[in-house]
Every structure is written in structure tokens, then in C-alpha cells.
Design a protein around this nucleic acid. Structure first.
Lengths: 204, 204
DNA sequence: TATATTGGTGCACAAATGTGCAATACCAGG
DNA sequence: CCTGGTATTGCACATTTGTGCACCAATATA
């Protein structure tokens, strides 16, 4: 998919925000108003460019814009789009664009509190006693700290892992919810990336 | 909320369908076309009625309809609305309107195949070894049969239960995924209501 | 029969909306 | 300095769209 100019990206964002607010798409005039410019025609040219670049679709009728590009699809009334983190590139923060595989829609019920969220596909069976299975999708609220016994996503030596955080008298450690796995007492650099707040499983 | 006439319900449905197809609301003319009538004004009167009855909202601009009533909210691009089954009234089929507590949005990823779906809040811990905990929301595909080892929702003497179906040589039975619970060999009237195809958990 | 409710037609009109053209401004690169 | 790409303006114009009115038709109800 071709590159777009900063102005065009701005317009895509305005369209998405407008739809989130009103639940129907803006007219060219509406977009011009939000950009504080006076020309519908300028908007039209940007829209035309976005359509031909495959970011947008439109019909002949009024307010018929439809966003195609996944990165700009508006969060709908009952759902939010959060980034699904794929392979984590060494050295990058977990939420860096480089790590985003795609965006996935999540029911708003799972993300009540303000904050940044991301999703992660669970690998391995180290948390089965907590009801977290391989290939489950966990919804994570971004945070650099957590409380005792909360289930967290941690980054240990550029490896992402889901475990239960234990903070008692001694050194904090990460506990698997599966007797077959040992507790992890992180040695070198490690960090908490967030708390697991939800889970979505797809049975086949 | 006040009652609406059959014609008004028809129009609400047309609006919802139109939005699902095009992802933007119809004009009065569009609605008139689908009803095969020629009058925009007739549509306008119905819309006005629906607004005053609280089923619909509209702004002053073109194509600014917004459905308020939960039963008619259009399934959005990435999600579907499925009924959450509350207490099950004796004698009613599980999907009867009487049993619907409310509608909940579910990511489309969980409901790929055609069919009727419903959601159920899990009670008890009889399925914890299958990673299904109390208060989890299970997404169920309506079906009156199921295969061996599938997790099903069954109705036994007007009681709803989630268990694993076992069909081997002998009589089919329902197996809990928790050693503390015995297998269930249904005696009297019982029926399979659907297969569990997904699960959503909210951690606090 | 009279009357209210609901639904539809045809026409008119103003405002919203998309489209098109010519001209200007800005900025980076040659 | 010139040139090309991007962005904006102002104006004009045809359609779409919502709104309003007078009137008709079918149906149920008093």
C-alpha cells in the first residue's frame, strides 16, 4: 500500500474520529471545518488521493466514506482496536510499531479503565492452571508495575512471557501456573510490560 | 419504551441492514427505494415517530441516522451482537426472547461460520480443567447435536449446564472437566443446545 | 356513519453536498 | 532561479437530501 502525505494521514484520522463521535461519516465541509480551512475542494482532492491509494472507499452519495486501511478503522461504539503484538524485536519497546502485527477489535467491556492496551497470543502451557491456554489472546493493560499475584506480561532478555507476579518478603519473582514449570527469578534486565485484564479464546 | 408499528419496525430493520452493508446510514430516498414506495415524506413521518419513541436519533445533516434501541443496533464490521442468556425460564427454548438478558458485542473472529449464536455466563467451576472458569462468558453456536469431546451447552430438566460431551460405545454422557464433579448420565428429558466456540474472560 | 390512526402520493423549495475549474501559495530539490 | 509536488482559495453548478403542505386510501373503532 502506497505512502500517504502527513496531511492525508491527518484527514484519515479526522474521518475516523468523526465516525467514532457521530457514528456516521463526515461531509467534506465537516472535514474542512475541523482542519480550519475553507475549501471543500482541497478536501476532495485529498479524499480522491486516499481512495486511489486504497486507504478509503467512497460511493457517489453524500457522507459515503468508508475507511479501508486497518490502522485507521474507527473504534466502533462497542469495541476498541488494540495492537496485537507479534514477534518482539530485540531492543524495541513492546508497543513499538515494529512489533505490531495487526490491530484486533476487542469488546469495550474488557477495557474499562483509561490507558494503553495491547493484545498478545499466548505461547506455551505455563499458565493453564490460571485458565490461560496456548493460542489464547490475552488483553493487556500497559503498565510498568503490578501488584502481588496479578498476572503480568514481562519482558525478560527480549523474551515476552505471561506469568503471575509474586511480591512477598524477598525478591519479586514470576510464577508459572503449571507445576511443570519452575518459578522465574529474573537475573539481568527485565521489566513488567502490563497486566492481563482479559482473555479471548477461540475454540475450533 | 413505547411500542412501534410493524411498518416502523420494518424501517428500523432496513436502516440496520443498510448500515451493515454500506457502513453509513441511508437517506430517506434509499429507505423508500427498499420499501418500494415513492414517498420520502412517508419515510420522514416514520423516522420522526421512531425518534420521538426513542428508537432512533438523528441530526440535522444528511444521512445522520443513529439507531438507539439495542435490539436493532447493526452488527458492525468487526463485531456481532448476540443475545446473552440469563435465567432460563422453564419450558421456553433457550433462545426465546424471554431468556435474553441483553445483547453483547462479540468479535467476529469468534463466529466465523453461519448460524445462530448466543452467550452464556458460566456458573460454577466444573470446567476449570478446560480453562473455563466461573463468570467467564462462553460464546455458543446454536446446535442440537455435537461431536464426541466437544464442549456443549445442555439443558437438563430446565437447568443449563456447560460440559464436555462424550459419545463412545455406550450411552452419551456429559463430563465435567474437574475431578471433583461426577459424570452426568442424563435421565429424563435433556437436549444439546449448542457448542461452545469461544470464550471471553474479564479479569479484575 | 363518523372518526381517528396509519401509511402513501405528488409537488415545491431551501439547504447540504459533491464536483469542477482557474488561480495562488508554499516548499524542497536541481 | 526554476520546477514539480502538495495544499489552499473562491466561485459556480448540478444533485442529493431533508422538510413541508395538501390530499388520498385503507383499516379499525366508536
Amino acid at each position: 500500500m502506497k505512502n500517504i502525505t502527513p496531511r492525508q494521514e491527518e484527514i484519515l484520522q479526522i474521518i475516523a474520529t468523526y465516525i467514532e463521535e457521530k457514528s456516521y461519516p463526515p461531509s467534506y465541509q465537516d472535514i474542512a471545518d475541523r482542519l480550519k480551512i475553507k475549501s471543500k475542494y482541497a478536501i476532495m482532492k485529498h479524499i480522491t488521493a486516499l481512495v486511489s491509494k486504497g486507504y478509503l472507499e467512497k460511493d457517489a452519495s453524500a457522507r459515503s466514506l468508508r475507511i479501508i486501511h486497518p490502522d485507521f478503522i474507527p473504534a466502533e461504539a462497542n469495541e476498541a482496536q488494540i495492537p496485537l503484538i507479534g514477534r518482539v524485536a530485540a531492543g524495541y519497546p513492546i508497543l513499538a510499531g515494529e512489533n505490531v502485527e495487526r490491530y484486533v477489535p476487542i469488546p469495550r467491556a474488557l477495557i474499562k479503565a483509561e490507558g494503553r492496551y495491547f493484545a498478545l497470543k499466548v505461547q506455551g502451557d505455563s499458565m493453564i492452571d490460571a485458565g490461560i491456554f496456548e493460542d489464547d489472546l490475552v488483553v493487556v493493560k500497559s503498565s510498568s508495575s503490578a501488584l502481588n499475584k496479578e498476572i503480568v506480561v514481562a519482558l525478560i532478555e527480549d523474551e515476552v512471557t505471561v506469568k503471575r507476579l509474586i511480591v512477598d518478603a524477598g525478591q519479586p519473582y514470576l510464577k508459572a501456573e503449571n507445576p511443570a514449570y519452575p518459578d522465574i527469578y529474573p537475573q539481568g534486565g527485565w521489566s513488567i510490560q502490563g497486566k492481563v485484564v482479559g482473555l479471548i479464546r477461540e475454540l475450533h
